[in-house]
């Protein structure tokens, strides 16, 4: 007999996977981006079901807010290339289907041999607020995870500087004059 959480899980899983399939098959890029948002929202619901509320909020703030909006803006900027009437799949897409199916089968087979598969979730001893506090303290603790935290910060800074330089239009003008 299915419990309420299980029914919620199954509905969310169906929506998420359906949206993911639409992401890789949809012809229009704008639709692809919107289906991607649907998938990301489904993952956020999974995070809530797994008692990781903070990660769900970060998922909404970083993925659905920042990343999805950035992708949609670039979709609109580059819409003149590859409209929805153009061919969207490469010539060897059937090989990609085989690769994905093999990978899925292999992953499921591998996980089926893991001993912990039927594990029930242990009850959490602390409340949701203490979980977030623990995560925040662990991130800035010198003896624990401050190095990955700082590496992530430097990575974001480097990515910001790098993307500004890569997308900078200034250097282009000379070459464009040469071409024309």
């Amino acid at each position: 007999m299915l419990t309420l959480t299980q029914i919620v899980f199954l509905i969310v899983a169906a929506i998420t996977l359906l949206a993911a399939i639409m992401v890789v098959t949809s012809r229009s890029m704008v639709h692809t981006a919107l289906w991607l948002i649907m998938t990301l929202a489904g993952i956020a619901v999974f995070f809530v079901l797994l008692n990781a509320g903070f990660l769900a909020v970060v998922q909404v703030a970083v993925y659905i807010d920042a990343i999805a909006i950035m992708i949609i803006i670039v979709v609109m900027l580059t819409q003149r290339s590859m409209g929805s009437q153009d061919r969207q799949r490469s010539k060897t897409w059937w090989a990609a289907v085989i690769a994905a199916l093999l990978l899925f089968g292999g992953l499921v087979l591998m996980f089926a041999q893991a001993p912990l598969l039927g594990a029930e979730a242990p009850t959490l001893t602390v409340g949701p607020e203490a979980l977030i506090e623990e995560l925040g303290l662990a991130l800035v603790d010198v003896d624990r995870y401050i190095v990955p935290f700082e590496v992530a910060s430097v990575l974001l800074l480097a990515a910001m500087v790098g993307s500004i330089i890569v997308a900078w239009p200034g250097r282009m003008s000379q070459e464009q004059e040469d071409e024309s």
Partner: peptide, 13 residues
């Protein structure tokens, strides 16, 4: 989800 992503990364133009 991972396999769907792999298909998309390999098959889209």
């Amino acid at each position: 989800l991972f396999s769907i992503g792999i298909y998309g990364a390999l098959a889209r133009r």
